[in-house]
Design a protein around this nucleic acid. Structure first.
Length: 293
DNA sequence: AAAACGTGGAA
DNA sequence: TTTCCAAGTTT
């Protein structure tokens, strides 16, 4: 959950998630739809599918017990070098390095790393440095301390006065570090969707790409020739800014290549919808109590 | 190896 | 308002 997501955001999901899926058997037995529903709003939905796949792997390949060594952990779906080592060091106190956003700030400043950290050379530098700094005993505590330092002192706006390792720090301009590659230019796009309501049911389709497995308003090829504009909003998406426009429309009776279903309005809260489409639906359903047939 | 993958908080 | 970015991984 914490991958590329702030701790405070994760906490608002964490307890409910664990209440719903308290252990590996429960998560392994859950449907992908249930998992996506519990995850909705958190983003990066591949994590939800991978976490479920990991639970299944734990049950089927590891006899229900989470593996202890980093290589085995790394083989689980959705777990890369950082997460594997983080679990190994925090759960099992193993002497393996970790490098995430906080430690990237700390090490790049401590060592005055001018190489962009989001390049192979930069990552190599940080990971080998983290490995060298590792103590033989108490690696879990050490790694935790590095992260806390990055979170509480060596943040985006560092508080060097209160830094416990200021005498070792090589940079004189901490706010210029870590360096990163130039961001790709923002791409602006408009996406057109249709809203159809019949007998208190809304037509939705299951996304096959961006929000794979989640339910969205049916895509339209472009601005429809007919149909009233019911909603317009914008949402950011990685390096895109997308304008979402929703029109009233009369769906053709047959539609191939995408799963479409009519959902009673009451059921909308129980199915996984991405945030922009949920907001659009909320907007339309509240402003037009009884829109077009 | 660049690009894709989401969302909301904070400056 | 815009921009940056957060306990990264996969393709």
């Amino acid at each position: 959950m914490l991958q590329q997501t702030q701790v405070a955001t994760v906490i608002s999901y964490y307890n409910e998630w664990l209440g719903r899926f308290p252990d590996f058997p429960a998560l392994a037995a859950a449907s992908e739809n249930d998992v996506l529903h519990a995850w909705q709003g958190l983003g990066y939905y591949a994590r939800a599918r991978n976490l479920r796949a990991t639970a299944i792997a734990i049950m089927e390949k590891h006899g229900g017990t989470f593996p202890r060594n980093p290589e085995s952990i790394r083989d689980l779906p959705g777990i890369g070098r950082y997460t594997a080592n983080a679990v190994a060091t925090f759960a099992f106190d193993q002497p393996v390095p970790i490098v995430e956003a906080n430690i990237t700030r700390v090490l790049s400043r401590l060592l005055d790393v001018q190489t962009p950290v989001d390049t192979n050379a930069g990552r190599q530098r940080l990971w080998s440095s983290a490995a060298q700094l590792l103590p033989r005993q108490g690696a879990g505590r050490h790694n935790s301390a590095l992260m806390e330092l990055g979170a509480l002192v060596c943040g985006v706006r560092p508080n060097c006065q209160s830094c416990p390792v200021k005498t070792f720090c090589r940079t004189t301009k901490p706010t210029l570090l870590p360096r990163k590659k130039a961001r790709p230019t923002l791409k602006v796009r408009t996406e057109h969707h249709g809203f159809a309501l019949r007998r208190r049911r809304v037509l939705l389709e299951q996304s096959e790409d961006r929000w794979r497995g989640m339910w969205i308003l049916p895509r339209l090829a472009g601005r429809p020739a007919t149909g009233q504009r019911l909603h317009r909003s914008q949402f950011p998406f990685t390096h895109h800014r997308i304008t979402l426009v929703v029109y009233s429309h009369q769906p053709p009776s047959e539609k191939k290549h995408s799963v479409q279903r009519w959902f009673p309005i009451r059921e909308l809260e129980s199915i996984p919808l991405p945030s922009p489409h949920r907001r659009a639906l909320d907007d339309i359903l509240s402003s037009t109590p009884d829109p077009v047939s």
